[in-house]
Amino acid sequence: MASPAPRPSKADVTFYVLLAVATALIVGALQVIFLRAPVERTMGIVQKIFYFHVPSAYTMYLGATACFVGSLGYLIAGKERWDAVARSGAEIAVVFGAIMLTTGPLWAAKAWGYYWTWDPRLTTALLSVLIYVAYLVLRAFAGDGEGERKFAAALGVLGAANLPIIHFAVKKWSGQHPQVISGKGGGLRHPDMRLALLLSFIAFTVFAGCLLWARVRLELARQRLARAEEDAIDLGLDHRTEA
C-alpha cells in the first residue's frame, strides 16, 4: 500500500501563501498599469513598458545580490547551501536581466527611434548579464567539484562589482537612458503612475522571492541526491544515472 502524502510543513505553507500573495499583487499591478494609470503625454502607451522594465532591472539586482551573498557565504563557510543560493541567484539575475534587455529596446524603438545604443547604462547592464551567463555556463560545463565551486564563487563575488557601476553610470558618464526615478526632474507626475510602479516593484519582489526559494530547494535536493549517489557507490552499488 502506498504511504500517505506527508503533511505540508511550515515552509510549504509559507511558500504557498507567498505565491498567492505574488499572484494577487501581479493581478493588482496589471489592473493599475493597464486600466488606471494614464497614458504618458509624449511617448503614449509604450511608456507602460516602464512599469515592468524597471522592476525587472531591480529584480536582476536582487538575483545578483543573492549570488553575491551565496558566493561569499560559500567562500567563508564552505557549506553547500550557500552554493545553492549563489547558483539560484545567478539564474534569477539572467532571467530578469534578459527581460530587462528585451523590454528596454522595445521602449527605445519608439522613444529614441532605434533599439540599441552603446549608452553607459545599457552597456554596463549588458556586461552584468553576460557575467552571470558566464557564471551559469561555468556551473553547467565545468563539473561540480570543490575547486569549480570556489572558482564560480569568486566570479559571483567579483561579478557584483559591476552592479553599482550600472546604477551610477548615468550620473557619471551621462548618456541617453532616462532618470525618471532617481533624477532631479518631475518623476512620475500622476499618483496612479506612482501606484502602478510601486505595485510592480512589490509584485516582482515577492514573485522573485518565490522563484528563488523554489530554485534553491531544487538545488538542495540535487545536492542531497548527489551525496546519496556517492554513498551508494561507496557501498558497492555502482550504477549511477547521470541526468
Binding site: V46, K48, I49, F52, T103, L106, A109, K110
Partner: peptide
C-alpha cells in the same frame, strides 16, 4: 511594442 514587451516578459 507594448504587447511585444509584455509577451517577451
Amino acid at each position: 511594442l507594448l504587447v511585444e514587451a509584455y509577451a517577451v516578459l
